[in-house]
Structure formats: C-alpha cells, structure tokens
Simulated scan of single mutants.
Amino acid sequence: MTPVELSRTVLGAVRRAVDAGELRVAVPERVVVAPPGAGGVGDYATSIALQLARPAGQPPLRVAELLRSHLVDADGIAGVEITGPGFLNIRLDQNVGTALVRRILDEGAARYGHSDTLVGQVYVLRVPYEIRAEVVADVLARMVASQGARVEIQQQELQKDDTHETLDVRPVPAPQDPTPLGPDAARWALLHPAPSDRPRITADHLVQREVNPLFRVRYAHARTRAVVCNAADLGIAVVPGPEAPFLPLLTDYPRILTTAAPLPRLPRADAIAAPARLARHLVAVADAVLDLLPGTLPRGDEKPMAAHRARLALAEAAGTVLAGGLSLLGIDAPDHL
C-alpha cells in the first residue's frame, strides 16, 4: 500500500463515518499521511481527527475513535492506535511490505515508479542560459518523461511556445562554475538544495565520508550490491518475506516522481522543487538502508534463515530505488566505491 493508497483508505473511513451520521462535516478532498513523528508508532500517522474535530463539534479523541473503528478492518491495515491529542497511527499488514519488495525486484530500476499516465502529453520547459537552470530542467524532464510525457527544453530567449503546457525554470543561479567538481558532484551540488537556496560549490561534495549526503547515497547503493553478491557466494537466495522490516520510504518513491507532473496543475515552485525533493528522498532511503544492512547476512556459525533471505530482498529493493533515483538525477550509481 502506497501513501497515496493509504490516504484514500483514510478518506474512505471519513466518508463512512459521515454516511453513518457519526460525523457532521464536509468530507475533505485529501488526507495527508506521513511517517509518525516523536511519540508516534506504526508505519504512518495522520492528524485528520484533529482537523475535523472543530467542524464536527466533537473532541479530537472522539473523532479519532470513530475513524479508527472504520479503519481497523480495511485491507492492508494491521492495526490502528491513537496517540497524543488524537493522532491516528497506522500499522500496515506485513504482507504489504513483501508485495512491495517483490514488485520492485520484478520491475527493476528502469520501471519502478514509472507510469504511462501522461502518455501523449507534451510539456515545454523554458530555461535561461545558466547551468543550474539547465541541470534542474534536465532532471525535471527526466522525471516527467518517467510518467510517459514528452518534454522539450527551450531557451527563454526564444519565442514562447503557446501550443503546449509551459513552465519557466529559474532557480537561484549557481554562484560559480561547478564543473571542476566533476559531473556527478556538480549535479548534486546544483540539485540537492531547494531551488530558492543558493547552492554551495565546494569540495565538500567530493568528501568520501558520511558527512557528504551524495557519498551516503552512493555508498548505500554499493553496499546493497555487495551484500547481495556476498549472499550469492554463500548460497543464500533473495526471497521477499514478512520477516524483513517494512520500509515505507520505498513506497514514497513513485509519489516523489509524480510531483514534477502534471506541471501545469502544480504551483511553479512545487514543480521546480521536484529534483531537490528526489535528492533528499534518496538520502533518507540511504540512511534507512545503512541502518538495516548490518543484520542482513548470518554472522559466525549462524545458519541462513527466512529472515536473512527477506532482509536481502529488502536490501536489493532499496538499492534498486537508489539506482533508479540517481539515474533520474543524471548521477552514476557505481557498484563499488
């Protein structure tokens, strides 16, 4: 179950509560779900009960209890707990994680997160003669193309194309030429900051240590490849299973790709920020998988078990997402560092 699907499930619970006369509110158009914050539990949390409490004329905890009763039996949900003043904390069925890992492994880096929802549409990105704008536009084009659309990049000095949807791409310019950093570090330096922030063109992006986010992403990918190769040498198969922890970040990846499209329906700043959002998402995936890897292979005389095979599958799936994301950013994902 992806965050979008879970959001729809929660929205359905709101509708059922309204239809049953338990809540007298206007059903919102969407419900935001996100990983739980401090004090939260489970895989995702939502504050929808707090948002509906005032218009419903009921305490937030009462609204949360009503919504919980409509959520606990929904497909893909293993449990719902209420924390704090009325946050709904949702634990997903472990089989959801198994199906997700299997899907990622089946589709691979070139297909997972991609869709054909925009097939037949054409978008025009207009950029000034400035390196950061050109790099951001290139990644936007890759992300939009991953959803099936065709993208053209034009210089803003040319006459505006009124026949297709157009977006002007003008992030804060780079303070200096980034090319001395090399192609990968230069791209990361331009893409990782928000488009409204001035990028740092410094040698920090070349440091081969964990303080460098680009290094962490590429290192995490290389480690997943190494672990899977080592497992193959030991005769341990990669088998998705519920014994591996669920990693919600992997379900967020397709949603991140869609934030760049359809361009005309998004505020300009939101669309242009899509490459930076993807870069930061890859850092979060890398940090999560690096925490998981130490317990992936058997240690000492420990015999391979189902848990090891399932963790291997999760590691390979995470590496697949990292490779796919780096490819969209135009950055190499080496198997060895």
Rank of each mutant, 00 (worst) to 15 (best):
A109L: 04
G79K: 10
V72Q: 03
V27N: 03
M1E: 12
E22H: 13
P248L: 06
A279F: 01
Y219R: 14
G108V: 06
L191T: 02
G21R: 01
G319K: 10
A20K: 11
Q58C: 04
A78W: 07
V127Y: 02
T224W: 03
E302M: 05
A174H: 14
V101Y: 06
A133C: 03
H164R: 15
R24H: 13
R309V: 00
A38S: 11
D73N: 14
A186S: 15
E210V: 11
T251K: 02
V285F: 10
R68S: 09
A273F: 01
V211G: 12
V27D: 05
E302A: 13
R299L: 13
S327L: 02
L247S: 10
L88H: 04
L263S: 10
R111I: 05
A78M: 05
G40E: 07
Q208P: 08
A310R: 01
R277F: 10
R150Q: 15
I77E: 13
T46R: 00
L61S: 11
G235E: 11
L100F: 08
E165D: 15
G325T: 13
I104Y: 08
R223M: 12
L140P: 00
I236D: 06
L92F: 05
E165C: 07
Y219H: 13
L266G: 07
Q154F: 11
V14H: 09
A288E: 15
W188I: 02
G79I: 00
L71C: 11
P175T: 03
G57N: 06
E165S: 15
L67G: 04
Q51V: 12
D116A: 13
L66A: 05
V135H: 04
R102F: 02
R223E: 07
V96Y: 09
Q208S: 14
E81K: 12
A145I: 03
V41E: 15
W188Q: 05
D252I: 09
A38P: 15
V119S: 14
D75T: 13
E29P: 04
A38H: 13
L61C: 02
L92N: 01
T259N: 03
R209Q: 09
P254I: 02
R132L: 06
L191H: 07
L266K: 14
R24Y: 05
L292D: 05
P275R: 07
Q154K: 12
A13W: 00
L118E: 12
P304M: 01
V135A: 08
R280A: 08
V283N: 05
L167N: 02
P242A: 04
A194Q: 11
L158C: 06
H221E: 09
A310C: 04
L67N: 01
R268I: 10
G76C: 08
S327T: 14
